[in-house]
Nucleic acid binder design. Structure first.
Lengths: 242, 242
DNA sequence: GTAATAGTGTCTTTTAGACAATATTTC
DNA sequence: GAAATATTGTCTAAAAGACACTATTAC
């Protein structure tokens, strides 16, 4: 540890423009619920380092060189990467946290802003593998192969955030179809919490959300193997990336 | 918007090393509770841009140029800046969110990782103004002068995070002395929520935390203007920056 | 009819909140 | 004793959870 004085000297000796700058990336934790399970989209790295390992999709933020053209926003970079990797647009994205431990990329200092994306199950079949990565695959979110870099930490942080938001926000609505049954929403909650919920008790919470104007009945029913269920719609306008 | 193809060409034409890189800073939302009010430490800018305006303390992350010496961690940069600006060390710090909108600094592309710090009221008198900034002052967290850059957004995000964590974590323990009375903890909650809480009802929650082993009685009492109160201690080890 | 799921109801426990009452200390 | 705060207690309402029961549809 340097002393206070030398630190201040350091600061005064260097002009801001002369501080070394890190590379900046966004990494995406793309989540969905399929077969009552929370799943994450991973890509297999085609290049060193960690060649052949599975990793979160991501890429460099486009940074402009001049004061007038500074490049794209972080949210924009996340949406663009998502589009490039999956072909999907208009998907719920939320910033999780930024990872910047020195040495996390052996080549150079790379700071990465992590986002999670919530993909409705109905869109999953439309996902097509893009980008440079050789392959893309959905894995159980808590059952992945070893991940490249510090991507396991990123995944854990994204899931923790999702769980923390679950009972506080309407985030689960991003993981069901536009119109959904009580069971479908319950299944999303169960997948996120990795825990079964009582159907009767969950329905009570559901009805309360109707009373609160969060959910409203929609037209039609959902055909099942037995008694068809009513479908509902999320009332509040969703915040989606444009 | 470019097409998918040209975006891919873009990616392939550029080696990672050749992407432009942003400047990287940390900005600190340093909070405390004084006189039953949540307060934030602001510094007055001595340089352009926004010369003379009040701003959050912060500074550049030290980034190494080589693969072997990549510089300091983000958490480390936040702790160092806090030490430089206030003289305090061993303070609770938590990453909030990263701000990187192009144009947020008119000089160049600057991406800033925001942390909040929680300073126990007992430490407030020890805070001394450091760094380059001419002056530092505590302001009511919701009653600040106009702030430089996008610092008002940062402050709002930090307060929102603090409020969201309040009932979910033991974060309020960072804003009371090491041993504290029921009232002191209640006052911290009231300041964060900007709302009065019933003393009797709060005590019930407090007793429940004792049952849960979160809080334990400590030796001594707190002298007041009337009946002295018992003091307690947070049981769980605190996570503090080293 | 049978299987399967939708949907309703009951009971208990926990928690939040409003609010009254009592206890203990300083001055 | 008066003021001030600590501390306890009561009552109500909202919510979570366990669990039994009824209704409706596909087959």
């Amino acid at each position: 540890m340097t002393t206070k004085t030398s630190e201040r000297q350091f600061l005064e000796r260097y002009r801001p423009e002369r501080f070394a700058r890190p590379s900046l990336t966004v990494d995406l934790v793309i989540l969905t619920v399929v077969d009552k399970e929370l799943r994450v989209l991973l890509v297999q790295r085609a290049e060193h380092p960690f060649k052949g390992r599975w990793a979160l999709p991501g890429g460099f933020v486009r940074v402009g060189e001049s004061a007038d053209h500074q490049g794209e926003d972080l949210d924009e970079a996340a949406a663009r990467e998502l589009q490039e990797e999956t072909g999907l647009s208009n998907i719920y994205l939320e910033q999780v946290r930024t990872f910047g431990k020195p040495g996390r990329d052996p080549r150079m200092r790379v700071v990465s802003v992590v986002y999670f994306a919530l993909v409705r199950p109905s869109l999953v079949p439309l996902v097509r593998s893009g980008g440079d990565a050789a392959r893309a695959r959905w894995y159980g979110a808590t059952d992945t192969p070893p991940l490249a870099f510090d991507h396991a930490d990123m995944l854990a942080a994204a899931i923790a955030r999702l769980r923390a938001d679950l009972d506080r926000t309407g985030i689960a609505f991003q993981l069901v179809p536009e119109t959904f049954t009580v069971q479908e929403l319950r299944t999303a909650h169960e997948a996120i919490r990795a825990q079964a919920l009582d159907p009767g008790n969950f329905r009570k919470r559901f009805l309360r959300m109707i009373d609160d104007g969060v959910i409203e009945p929609a037209r039609g029913k959902r055909a099942t193997a037995s008694k068809p269920a009513h479908v509902y719609r999320f009332t509040v306008e969703r915040e989606v990336e444009s």
